[in-house]
Amino acid sequence: MTEVIARRGFHGPSSEEAIEAIHNELDALWDDASFVPDMDRMTFATAVIEAAANIVQHALPVADKPVEIDVDISVRPSRLVARVSAFNAREPFANDMQANMPDEEAESGRGLALIEALVTTVTFERQDGTNTWILTRNT
C-alpha cells in the first residue's frame, strides 16, 4: 500500500450542501499537507468539485433510496488521489459522459472535458449500484 500522508472525506445526501462541504474538506486537506504546491491544489480541487457536481446534477436514484455522495481524498508521496462515488445511483447516460469541449455558446457540458484536462488519470467504475470516479494527479 502506498503511504497516505493526509486524508479527508465526506459522505452525505447528494445536494448543493454536499458541494460546499466537500470544498471545505479540500481546503482542510491542504491545511494538513501544506507542502502541496498551489498549482496541484488548484487543479485537483477543481477536478474533484467537477466530479461531485456532476453527481449532484445528473445522478438518478436506482430505487426509492436517494443518491448519496461519498468523497475520499488523499495526499500520497507523489500523487493526489480522489474517489468520488454516487451510491444508490443508476448507470450514467452516455450523454452525461460526453468528454469533448462543447462550442463556445454552450452554457453546460464542459465538466468532464475539464476533469480530463486537470488530472493525470480518470477512471470510472460501476459496482452494485455505485458509480465511482477515481481521479489521480501526479505531483
Binding site: 470544498h23 468539485i49 467537477e50 457536481a53 446534477q57 454552450a106 453546460s108 464542459r110 465538466g111 475539464l114
Partner: peptide, 8 residues
C-alpha cells in the same frame, strides 16, 4: 474558485 457551472 469557479467551476464549469460558474463558467456556464
Amino acid at each position: 474558485f469557479m467551476d464549469s457551472s460558474g463558467l456556464g
